[in-house]
Structure formats: structure tokens, C-alpha cells
Amino acid sequence: MDEKKVREVARLARLELSDEEVERFAADLESILEAFKELDNVDTDGLEPSFHPVKIEDVFREDTPEKPLSQEEALSNSPNTEDGFFKGPRIV
């Protein structure tokens, strides 16, 4: 993990970092990834990955209509709204 890699990952994650943060994270993550090598010593041949710690089964419920949030409630946490819509940054 070097500074170039941190910048590449930060760009993918849409995260603005200062030069000082890039430098610090590169050093931190280098030592963390080094520690993760512990997993190379664990033989996992033939094992399935556990996406959950317990078995999750499909559950069904009656399809009964409920009252959803009103438009006003849904928009209540944004200062950037117009005509009942959220306003976002431009796409192009």
C-alpha cells in the first residue's frame, strides 16, 4: 500500500483526502495489511464463505398495503429540494 494506491482507492470511494491524510493512511494500511497475512496461515480449502454467521432463510409475509412516508416527510431532511424532488449536483 503506497500513496498512489491510497489516492486510487479514495477516488473510487469518492472521498477527498488531504496530502497529509494520504501519507498517514498509506503507512497505517501498510502495517494493517501486513497483519492480515495471518489469514494466509489458515487452510480454508473446501470451505464455503459465511456471508452471515447464522443460516438466513427466506421469509414471507402477507402483501398488505401500509401507509408510506408522506412526500413532505421524505424530503424533510434536505435543504436542497424543488417541486417535491431532491436536488443533486449536475451529472455532466
Binding site: V42, T44, L47, E48, P49, S50, F51, P53
Partner: peptide
Amino acid sequence: MKALKVRTKVI
């Protein structure tokens, strides 16, 4: 993926 398999083994 490796971590998820290690989790299976831990369980």
C-alpha cells in the same frame, strides 16, 4: 473471500 471462509472455520 478469504476472510469469509476463515469465518466459517471460526464458527
